[in-house]
Each structure stands twice: as C-alpha cells, then as structure tokens.
C-alpha cells in the first residue's frame, strides 16, 4: 500500500503506523460520565468498507494524518490531510529550481498538495 503524506509525498505504507479510528474523540477533560470514558477507551466500530483513520508517519516526518480508507479493498479514498497544529496551514509550494524563495506573510493558499501528480 502507498500512502500520500502531505509533507513528504507518496511513500510505502511500511513508513507509517496505523493510528486508530479518526471518528473517535477524547471526551473533554472535565467529562465525568464514566460511560463516555469507557466508550472512548474500549469501544470501536469494526467497520467493513470506508473508514476514517489516523496514520502516523513514524519513519518519515512523524506527522499525523487523517484519511478515508476502504478496509476491504485497502484503497485510500480521500486525500490524506495533516492533523494537529498545522492542519490549516498553507502547504509549501512545489519545489522550484531556483533557491531564492523568500518567505512572504501573504502566501497564496495552495489547494493542490505538494507532489500531487
């Protein structure tokens, strides 16, 4: 399986570690309902078909990604996206030959991920 990392480009799945069901959210720190915590810690839907998953690029940039993948065909159905503090940041521009890029505060939001074919 190949997984597209928004930072590193397409890589072999062996560089990644599965990170769990991405539809599950940790209850708020002040949540006192024991059921809610048990649900979070123990219960997962064993989905057949498309599933939203976290993947961790452990042998690469170590970013966390979220993607939709079919658990039967292994096909990745969505463009993997970063999760975390940088999730909404504009991506870097595709590599250019000259080395004279300067950072500009007004960067154009790039809709195509780096390295997309």
């Amino acid at each position: 399986m190949r997984i597209y990392c928004p930072i590193c480009g397409e890589r072999d799945s062996g560089e990644f570690t599965y990170g769990g069901d991405a539809t599950v959210h940790r209850p708020a720190m002040d949540e006192t309902d024991a059921e809610a915590w048990c649900q979070y810690v123990y219960n997962r839907e064993n989905r057949r078909g498309p599933m939203l998953e976290y993947w961790h690029h452990t042998q690469g940039c170590r970013a966390w990604l979220v993607l939709e993948r079919d658990t039967v065909t292994h096909k990745i159905l969505s463009q993997p996206r970063l999760v975390g503090p940088w999730a909404d940041e504009p991506k870097g521009n595709p590599p250019i030959d000259s080395g004279s890029d300067t950072g500009s505060a007004e960067r154009e939001r790039v809709s195509e991920p780096v390295g997309a074919e």
């Binding site: 590193c8 480009g9 940039c61 991506k91 870097g92 590599p95 250019i96 780096v114």
Partner: peptide, 20 residues
C-alpha cells in the same frame, strides 16, 4: 525554502525545511 523537503545552503551552512 518554502517547499517542504528542500534545502538551501552555502559552503558552511545548510538549512532544510522538513515540514511546516
């Protein structure tokens, strides 16, 4: 560099942009 996975450098120093 703005692009991830690129570097710029001179004889002494290289700076690499590894990610955001």
């Amino acid at each position: 560099p703005q692009a991830f996975g690129m570097s710029s450098g001179d004889e002494t120093t290289t700076v690499m942009t590894l990610g955001p």
